[in-house]
């Protein structure tokens, strides 16, 4: 299979690629958690620190779940348990039809950690090759995919540079590359936009869209609501280790009184008219600023001009 492919090819070839692999497990959700608990030992091994208190959650394949919550709400721990890094203290956990402690399940997972702790001694190319081989990619596949994925995330020119000399943003892009390299069936992204520039966010959206198109499930955690609200099919709000709310994003905010409206081709006059209309409807515009893709659009305009 040629890599990278255009979205249309991915939609067809990607689904064909997955058809066999998922034939026997199509009815299984990407993951299912029932009463999941996690605690860590307290200082000096005395007592215990409860992080997750009985989480019930599931996600179907081909859908995206947004995991939101304040700092310390247990989002990262939940993702680490799904990724097989942590062991749950209690409860039922099924990921891709099995336990994430099994290597054959982890082979079908992609994980972007919150920080970027990749081996800093290795060049981006060697590190991506190592991580791909640890996910079971053959040498031939790696030879084809590694340079293509580095180009995809905009790191082709610095492929020989060691990760220790990468900026934070470059490391996040590398993190995206390793999470999507082996075309996983479940992709877990912990705060993926933290440290990413506008171009990087664009790459993330593309990779995420392609993964969903080929039938993979995606979980994105963020403490920024707007990062996950638009693209997510489902939202889960975690507060102090408990699911405070879960469901479709529109339904979750239906009762809310604060909404974000993003306009295209909106000049100052159009914005003023909308503000007036809002006021007439009894609402108040409390902030006004560039939309999510505005910076990327600016880069493109400046690039074309130069």
């Amino acid at each position: 299979m040629r890599f990278p492919m255009d979205p249309e090819t991915i939609a067809v070839a990607g689904l064909a690629h997955y058809r066999d692999r998922m034939a026997n497990s199509a009815s299984e959700p990407a993951f299912r958690l029932v009463g999941l608990r996690k605690h860590f030992p307290g200082p000096l091994g005395l007592g215990r620190h409860e992080v997750l208190h009985g989480i019930d959650l599931s996600l179907e394949r081909g859908r995206m779940l947004g995991l939101v919550g304040p700092n310390g709400s247990g989002k990262s721990t939940l993702l680490r348990i799904l990724a097989g890094i942590e062991r749950a203290s209690a409860g039922e956990l099924r990921v891709l039809g099995g336990s994430p402690e099994r290597a054959d399940v982890r082979r079908r997972l992609g994980f972007l950690p919150e920080v970027s702790p990749f081996p800093e001694e290795l060049s981006a190319r060697s590190a991506l090759d190592l991580l791909g081989s640890l996910q079971g990619l053959s040498r031939a596949d790696r030879r084809e995919r590694v340079p293509a994925m580095l180009a995809r995330v905009g790191l082709a020119d610095v492929g020989r540079r060691t990760l220790g000399r990468f900026s934070k943003g470059m490391l996040r892009r590398f993190g995206l590359a390793q999470a999507f390299l082996h075309e996983p069936e479940l992709i877990l992204l912990d705060e993926p936009t933290a440290g990413l520039d506008a171009v990087g966010v664009g790459v993330l959206q593309e990779l995420r869209g392609e993964a969903l198109a080929r039938g993979a499930a995606v979980v994105v955690s963020s403490h920024i609501f707007s990062d996950v609200f638009d693209p997510a099919d489902e939202l889960c709000v975690l507060i102090e280790g408990r699911v405070a709310a879960a469901g479709e994003p529109e339904r979750l905010v239906a009762d809310g009184s604060r909404v974000r409206l993003e306009l295209e081709n909106a000049g100052p006059e159009a914005v003023e008219r909308i503000e007036r209309a809002a006021a007439e409807a009894g609402a108040k515009v409390v902030s006004r600023g560039p939309g999510a893709g505005a910076l990327l659009e600016l880069y493109r305009r400046l690039g074309d001009a130069s």
Binding site: A83, I85, R106, P117, P119, L134
Partner: peptide, 12 residues
């Protein structure tokens, strides 16, 4: 540091 990239891999 390394567990985040190492422990989630498909090796025992």
């Amino acid at each position: 540091t390394d567990s985040d990239w190492l422990a989630s891999r498909a090796v025992g």
